[in-house]
Simulated scan of single mutants.
Amino acid sequence: MKPTPSSRPCPSCNNAMQVHELPGQYDSAVEIDFCFSCQGIWFDSMENLRLAPAAVATMFKEMHQHRDTPHAPLAGRLRCPQCRGGLVQGFDVVRSGRFITHRCESRHGRFSSFSSFMIEKGFVRQLTKPEIADIAKKVGVINCSNCGAPVDLRKEDSCSHCRSALSLLDPGAVEKALQNYAKAPSAHAAPATAVADALVAMARERSRTQRLDVWPSDTRLTGAGLAVDLFAVGLTLVSSLWDD
Rank of each mutant, 00 (worst) to 15 (best):
L74C: 03
K138G: 07
C147F: 00
K183Y: 05
G234T: 12
I32T: 07
C10W: 11
F36N: 09
P81H: 05
S158G: 05
C104T: 10
K61R: 14
H66A: 13
P70S: 07
F36W: 07
A72R: 08
W242Y: 13
R8C: 10
D170F: 11
F34T: 08
L237P: 01
R206L: 11
K176Q: 12
D213R: 10
L237A: 03
E62T: 12
V94A: 04
T58E: 14
G234S: 09
A136I: 09
C35T: 01
L235F: 04
S116N: 01
R107K: 12
G148S: 03
S158E: 11
R79K: 13
T236P: 00
T4D: 07
L169T: 06
L212T: 03
T193N: 15
S112Q: 10
H66C: 11
S37K: 10
M46T: 10
H108D: 11
A55G: 04
A149H: 07
G172K: 09
K121A: 05
P9E: 14
A187V: 12
V94Q: 09
G109I: 07
Q179D: 10
E62P: 09
E205T: 01
T193A: 15
G85R: 14
H71Q: 09
R107T: 09
T193K: 14
V88I: 14
R95F: 07
D157S: 07
A232E: 08
Q126S: 05
A16V: 11
S28I: 04
V228E: 06
A29G: 05
P23V: 02
S160N: 08
M202Y: 00
L74P: 03
T4P: 01
P130W: 10
S116L: 04
A57C: 10
A177K: 00
F117R: 03
H188L: 15
S116V: 04
P70N: 08
K183M: 12
G172C: 08
